[in-house]
Simulated scan of single mutants.
Amino acid sequence: MTTKLGSTIKSRLAELGRTQEWLAGETGVSKNAVSKWIRDGKISRVNAIAAAKALGLSADQLLLGQPLADASPPAETTLERLDAKEKHLLELYRRASRDGKLMIYGAATVAPKEEDSDTTFTRPQ
């Protein structure tokens, strides 16, 4: 069953030619989480703000299902502005933080996972 929130998300994704997977990436959650928002109509405040911003909607438009006619196109997303190396680093960070293996010392040292052991991050001296 699709909720009002779900209908709003689905219709806006269709207008933008985007997928649930894209929205998940933009908001930093799993595709299953986006699917649950659509199905159950429940979303945290932080995720609602992130989703509204990604979809180019106000929070009211997203949560209350207000008309989308005056919805603005979303600004260029941060992810679209990243080069390949930056996207790779972001993926490493997300994977490490999801697995609970992220350790930060100071402001710049990250301990990568074993399969990523060829990449090291150290704080400048």
Rank of each mutant, 00 (worst) to 15 (best):
V29Y: 02
D116Y: 12
S58E: 06
A54C: 12
R81K: 11
E26V: 03
E21P: 12
A51G: 13
L13T: 04
V34Q: 02
A107W: 00
G56F: 04
P73G: 04
A75M: 13
G41C: 05
L55P: 04
A59F: 15
Y93W: 09
K31V: 09
G41D: 09
A48Y: 09
T27A: 03
I38E: 00
E15Q: 14
I43M: 02
A48E: 14
K36E: 07
Q61Y: 09
G106E: 13
S97L: 07
A96P: 13
T8A: 04
V29D: 03
L16K: 03
K36M: 05
K31T: 12
K113F: 15
N32P: 00
K101E: 10
G41L: 05
G25H: 09
I38N: 00
L79D: 08
K85M: 04
I9P: 02
A59M: 15
A14L: 07
E15H: 12
P74R: 05
Y105E: 07
A51H: 05
R12W: 13
R45W: 10
E80C: 10
P74S: 05
A107N: 01
E76L: 08
Q125C: 07
L63N: 10
L79N: 04
T27P: 05
P124F: 10
W22R: 13
I38T: 02
W22H: 15
A107I: 07
Q61H: 14
L68S: 03
A96E: 09
K42Q: 09
D60C: 09
V46N: 03
D40W: 00
T77F: 10
T8E: 01
A54D: 08
W22A: 08
E114Y: 10
R45S: 12
K53F: 08
S58N: 08
S11W: 00
P124D: 08
L90Y: 07
D40G: 00
L90V: 10
G41K: 02
I9G: 01
N32T: 15
L55T: 04
G28A: 15
D99K: 03
V110L: 06
D60I: 03
Q20G: 11
E15S: 12
A14M: 06
A50H: 14
S58Y: 04
L13Q: 00
Q66A: 08
M103D: 15
R95I: 00
A14C: 09
P74C: 04
L68C: 01
S97F: 06
G100L: 09
A75Y: 12
E115I: 14
K87L: 06
R98S: 04
S117K: 03
D116R: 07
D70A: 11
G56L: 09
E86A: 15
K101R: 08
L62M: 12
S72E: 14
R123H: 14
S117R: 01
L79S: 04
L92H: 06
S30Y: 00
L79G: 02
G25N: 07
A33T: 15
L16D: 12
S72Y: 11
R81G: 02
E115Q: 06
D116W: 08
N32F: 10
I9R: 03
T120W: 01
E76Q: 13
